[in-house]
């Protein structure tokens, strides 16, 4: 009896998540060391440059419609002079149990064979459900068709689709770079090497706070860092099982008194 139940459950699970592979070939993971991140915003601009993100202007920014696939959130504690500022870069967490994937009625967002949470622009009908369900608020919507004045459009990356009005988008872990690396690996009949795929944000990060790689490969940097005792994941209580792993920042407890007074 329990066997049948198990089988039915298994079937249901398969049905519930088509495209959800039981074993990922790669498990792309990003590790972000908050103790290294200094909040310089280089990643934000690098992402803009790589992924054809539009510039929306001051008015639209004031309506909270700026396009940042990666953003750096700042949290400030305490009052002068005991101020503590904390930075955290947040991009799509590529949850393995993603609320957004549940919401989309047309499978425009789904889990692909690399453990990535993928947004298929040309399938999107714009119900906003994924963005509403996303606890990390990382999804951005094309409110209009954004145009670049000439010749700024010459910069647009031909490897990345330019999105039209009415389509949801988000961080892809620079999927176009993963594709190039996999293509190369396939030519040489091997697996993608550690460090071969470097998303734009990771590439530019001056402090080296961001590390990207395949967690299935036990020798990769991310696999090692992911075991750090400082690891945590954002809003872990929601059980979304993100692929982005943060390492805790080392910092004195706020409110602890100035050093000098105790000598």
């Amino acid at each position: 009896m329990s066997k049948i139940v198990k089988k039915v459950k298994e079937r249901l699970r398969d049905f519930r998540r088509p495209g959800y592979y039981k074993e990922f070939e790669y498990n792309w993971t990003m590790v972000i060391d908050l103790d290294k991140c200094n909040g310089c915003e280089a990643c934000v601009v690098a992402c803009h440059a790589e992924n054809n993100l539009p510039i929306v202007g001051k008015d639209e920014c004031s309506k909270s419609r700026a396009f940042n696939w990666i953003r750096i959130e700042r949290y400030v504690e305490g009052e002068f002079p005991n101020v503590k500022v904390k930075f955290i870069p947040i991009m799509c967490q590529h949850c393995n149990s993603a609320p957004c994937e549940l919401g989309c009625p047309v499978y425009a967002t789904y889990h692909n064979q690399d453990g990535l949470n993928v947004q298929v622009y040309n399938r999107c009908v714009g119900t906003f459900t994924c963005a509403t369900y996303c606890p990390y608020d990382v999804r951005r919507f094309n409110w209009f068709t954004y145009k670049w004045p000439e010749p700024l459009d010459q910069q647009l990356n031909p490897d990345v689709t330019v999105r039209e009005m009415g389509v949801m988008e988000k961080c892809t872990f620079c999927i176009q770079r993963i594709r190039v690396a996999k293509d190369r690996a396939k030519d040489e009949n091997r697996k993608v090497r550690d460090g071969e795929v470097v998303p734009a944000c990771v590439q530019s990060c001056p402090t080296g706070a961001l590390v990207f790689g395949d967690r299935n490969d036990p020798k990769s940097r991310v696999a090692k860092l992911a075991k750090s005792p400082r690891r945590f994941r954002l809003l872990e209580g929601l059980n979304t099982d993100p692929s982005v792993i943060y390492l805790k920042r080392v910092m004195k407890k706020s409110g602890s008194k100035k050093h000098g007074e105790h000598g």
Binding site: P18, L102, P105, R123, C124, V125, F128, M165, G166
Partner: peptide, 26 residues
Amino acid sequence: GRPWNFYWSFPYPNQRLLWTNFQSPL
């Protein structure tokens, strides 16, 4: 966002092997 594609939310057989997400509350 793209109402002209509303019919994609109906489960109809098509050559593109696309299906709808019955898991979605929508």
